[in-house]
Computed example of a mutant assay.
Amino acid sequence: MTVRNRGALAAMAAGVAALTVATLVACGSQPAENVGAEEANALATATATPPVTGDVPVATGDLPTGAKVIPPVRLVIPEIDVTATVNAVGINERTNEFEVPPSVDQIGWYRYGPGLEADAGSVVIAGHVDSAKQGKGAFFRLRELDKGDTLTATGRDGKERKYRVVAREEYAKTKIPLDRYFARDGEARLTLITCGGPFDAKARKYRDNIVVTAVPA
């Protein structure tokens, strides 16, 4: 697996071509104010180290030895009317970008990070905000989530796991702290990512990423 540090997550939050999301400018042009940033930061270890290599967007840390990784297969977020299939995704070998499912109503779990059974680290799920051809994506309303909202992730083992939102943040794609959101250490948490901010029609991509952090309820 190879991943460009900045390119991968910018790509990861995805859209029309590869992973740069496209079209409805109004969707992310006036984002709500960030909430819970300090709490989200505290969930990661204070001594987070740089990525293992320049190509891997995760902090140093081993996955549980001998543990059976449980991928999420379904995500339900009642507050924004989301019921979406979750696919295990990796990196597109041709483009070197995080490969979000092409159907905008489906979302992708970063399979090189922790699964739902992990008691530490960030379980990353990314989805499209919208598409010029397909319309609104599963994460079109992700920016509306607020502290205290709840969601349910169902694993391949059939078990439903409840989470509570603690933070919603927006970053320019060039400034998002990848090590924090792809970390394998720190408190167990769920990280949801999509695109937001103004849409650059010429570049056909949004300027920012919206990141929602949730913890086991």
Score class of each variant (00 low, 15 high):
M1Y: 10
T2D: 09
V3M: 13
L9P: 00
L9V: 14
L9W: 15
A10H: 08
A13D: 02
A18P: 02
A22G: 11
G28S: 11
S29F: 12
S29M: 13
Q30E: 15
A32S: 13
A37M: 15
A37G: 15
N41V: 14
A44Q: 12
T45I: 10
T45L: 14
A48L: 15
T49S: 13
T49N: 10
T49I: 05
P50H: 04
P51E: 04
P51Y: 03
V52F: 10
T53R: 06
V56G: 06
V58C: 12
T60W: 13
G61I: 00
D62R: 14
A67K: 10
V73F: 11
I77T: 01
T83A: 14
T83F: 11
T85K: 12
T85N: 05
V86M: 06
V86S: 04
A88D: 12
V89Y: 00
V89N: 00
I91Q: 06
I91G: 01
E97A: 10
E99Y: 10
P102D: 12
I107Q: 07
Y110C: 01
G113A: 10
L116M: 06
L116A: 03
L116D: 02
A118G: 08
D119K: 07
A120Y: 11
G121K: 06
S122D: 09
V124R: 01
I125E: 03
A126E: 05
H128E: 12
V129I: 12
Q134M: 11
A138G: 03
F140D: 02
F140K: 01
E144V: 08
L145P: 01
K147C: 03
G148P: 00
D149F: 04
D149H: 11
T150Q: 09
L151W: 03
G155W: 14
R156V: 00
D157F: 14
G158K: 08
K159H: 08
R161P: 05
R161E: 05
V165E: 01
R168P: 00
E170Q: 10
E170A: 08
A172T: 06
K173C: 03
K173M: 08
K173V: 14
D179V: 15
Y181L: 13
G186Q: 04
E187I: 04
A188N: 09
R189D: 07
L190P: 06
L190Y: 07
T194M: 05
G196Y: 09
G197W: 05
K202E: 10
R204E: 13
Y206P: 02
D208L: 10
I210D: 04
V211P: 00
V211E: 01
T213F: 00
V215L: 05
A217W: 03
A217M: 02
